[in-house]
Design a binder for these strands. Structure first.
Lengths: 136, 136
DNA sequence: GCGACAATTGCAACACGGTTGCATTAAATT
DNA sequence: AATTTAATGCAACCGTGTTGCAATTGTCGC
């Protein structure tokens, strides 16, 4: 689906920056940080705007957020079935310790776990680390 | 084991601050951030010192580091079998979205996963989210 | 196409954790 | 006790994340 259509479908106004960022995310194999986007689209927009664009994408269900190992947020485009407040990115993430890239591993499901008595489980994240196919 | 003994066994010099921090970590049910330690031990030491103490603990195998959901590092005391460069904290972590506390769930093992061809897996982290027994 | 309204953007500024360099202090070794 | 080696405190810096506000721009009805 075209980026403009996707924005419209998720009730976000269509601006040059949003289209450019969404295209970028969609074409990237790895999740991108705000800084990555900034570097990939120089002079496109202020860093605060990029921050807010990515924030809006996440809230709207257009992208999901993954934390890298150093506390920096990275974003990857969501499956088509995600919508505002309802993400379905139930897969593992692989972080390459060489290049820093984060890959969504759709094929790796999240395990069913049992938590101790009294704890209430709402969400789970599985993060794998190692070398990606480009670095190994 | 006494904190002084543990420091000695891991080839770290024994200082008031290190003993205090190690005692604190050992007595805490949840993983603590540098800020947590700072607040728990006011006037004990400079924040840079606390940063370096926690860093030294991790390198020495006295504590392991867990990232909270917002990119802040938290530390929990390690099992006795951990040593410099060889951590054995192969368990899941539970983050309470209400109080922010992070619990080590020794009873929850890490799943065996298969990564795509070309990827080389070295480490994995399982992070669970929800409400802890105190908040639920 | 034009105007009105609401959403988006840019800029300045700040918060906070993480991090380094360097001079000072303190622990371990003899 | 003297020497060596590591730990500490302080100042300072970086990058990400964040907010407030004024200026700009997209969208919708006409």
């Amino acid at each position: 689906m075209d980026s403009r259509e996707r924005l419209r479908a998720h009730h976000l106004r269509i601006t040059d920056t949003r289209v450019a960022v969404l295209d970028l995310l969609h074409g990237s194999e790895t999740a991108l940080s705000q800084g990555d986007v900034e570097r990939a689209l120089p002079d496109q927009a202020d860093r605060v705007t990029l921050f807010r664009v990515l924030q809006a994408f996440e809230e709207a269900g257009l992208a999901h957020r993954v934390m890298d190992g150093h506390g920096v947020a990275r974003y990857a485009s969501c499956a088509a079935t995600c919508s505002s407040g309802h993400h379905h990115d139930v897969h593992a993430h692989f972080r390459c310790t060489d290049c820093g890239g984060i890959y969504c591993l759709e094929a790796v499901p999240l395990p069913q776990v049992k938590v101790p008595k009294g704890f209430r489980l709402k969400d789970s994240h599985l993060e794998l680390e190692g070398s990606c196919k480009a670095c190994a």
